[in-house]
Simulated assay, not measured.
Amino acid sequence: MTTTDKPYGWSPDMHVPLLEKLKADLKTSMLQKNETLRNAIRQIMSEFPKLTVPLTLESGKKSFRLKTAEEITNDDILDIIRGLVKSEKTVISLKPEQSPEYLHILEAYLPKMASEEDIRSWIEENVDFSKFKSPTQAMGAIMKHFGKQADGNLVKRILDERKR
């Protein structure tokens, strides 16, 4: 089953804010009595109190307040999901008998990562290695282009191959 076959998940080309999609999927999961999906979405939403806005009070003291639903961006939620995916991968590595279904649900809400071929072709077309003393110095430009869509370890491995 691919992510397009699933009744849940999100991608930037849907033109729907991720928060709205999560709320709709939560409602659907409750109607369908899909506890695993419901619990995964609730876990994501339970992290929202970590999203804050810094404030400076009249006394000059620094403080913060929680972000309102209107202030929560797709990037905020994606960062939360990435953190949950990372911790779930750690749990699965320690307890291989653990079901990866929760992990698959979380990953369905993340945008597709850039493939190794995508990264290699972009590097060939856009990076002039004559400007760098070492190929790994191009990492900043590459990661700036791909952002969180590229795995830094993969980019580093591709650049390390150029050194040889």
Rank of each mutant, 00 (worst) to 15 (best):
V91E: 14
L110H: 14
S115W: 06
T73N: 01
I72E: 08
K112G: 00
E97H: 08
H104L: 11
K86E: 10
S115A: 05
E88A: 03
K67W: 14
K112L: 00
E116Y: 04
E58F: 02
T68I: 05
T73Q: 04
I105G: 11
H104Y: 14
S99E: 06
G83P: 05
E70Y: 14
A69T: 05
I92G: 07
S93E: 15
P49A: 03
P111K: 04
D79S: 09
P96K: 11
N74K: 05
S99C: 05
P54H: 14
T52S: 03
M113S: 09
P111T: 10
R82S: 00
L106V: 04
L94W: 15
T73G: 01
I80Y: 10
Q98P: 02
E101N: 14
K61Q: 12
L51S: 00
V53L: 11
I80T: 09
I77R: 09
R65D: 01
P54L: 05
P96G: 11
I92V: 12
D76K: 06
R120N: 10
Y102H: 13
A108Q: 01
K50Y: 03
T73L: 01
E97V: 00
E101L: 12
S121D: 09
F64G: 03
S121Q: 12
R82I: 03
T90L: 13
P49F: 06
T56D: 04
A108S: 10
I72S: 09
S63R: 01
R82V: 00
K112D: 07
P96C: 05
S99F: 11
K62W: 06
K61W: 06
S59H: 05
S87W: 13
K67P: 06
P111M: 02
E70P: 02
L66A: 05
I81Y: 11
Q98K: 15
F64K: 11
Q98Y: 12
K67Y: 13
K50H: 08
K61H: 07
L94T: 15
D75M: 04
P100R: 10
L57E: 02
E70Q: 14
E70F: 14
E101S: 13
D75R: 08
V91M: 13
L51R: 05
M113G: 00
K86I: 00
E71D: 06
L84F: 09
E97Q: 08
S115Y: 08
E101V: 10
E58P: 06
L103D: 08
S115E: 07
E88K: 09
E71A: 10
E97G: 00
V53R: 14
K86C: 00
G60W: 02
S63T: 04
D79H: 14
E116C: 05
D76I: 01
L57F: 01
Q98E: 11
K89Q: 15
D76M: 07
D75G: 03
E101A: 14
R120V: 08
E117K: 11
R120W: 02
S87D: 15
I72Y: 13
M113R: 06
L94E: 14
L94K: 15
V85L: 04
L94P: 08
I119R: 02
E71M: 06
G83E: 13
I119D: 00
R82T: 03
K61M: 10
I80D: 07
S99I: 01
K62A: 09
A108T: 12
S87A: 09
Q98T: 12
L110K: 10
L57M: 01
L110R: 13
I72T: 12
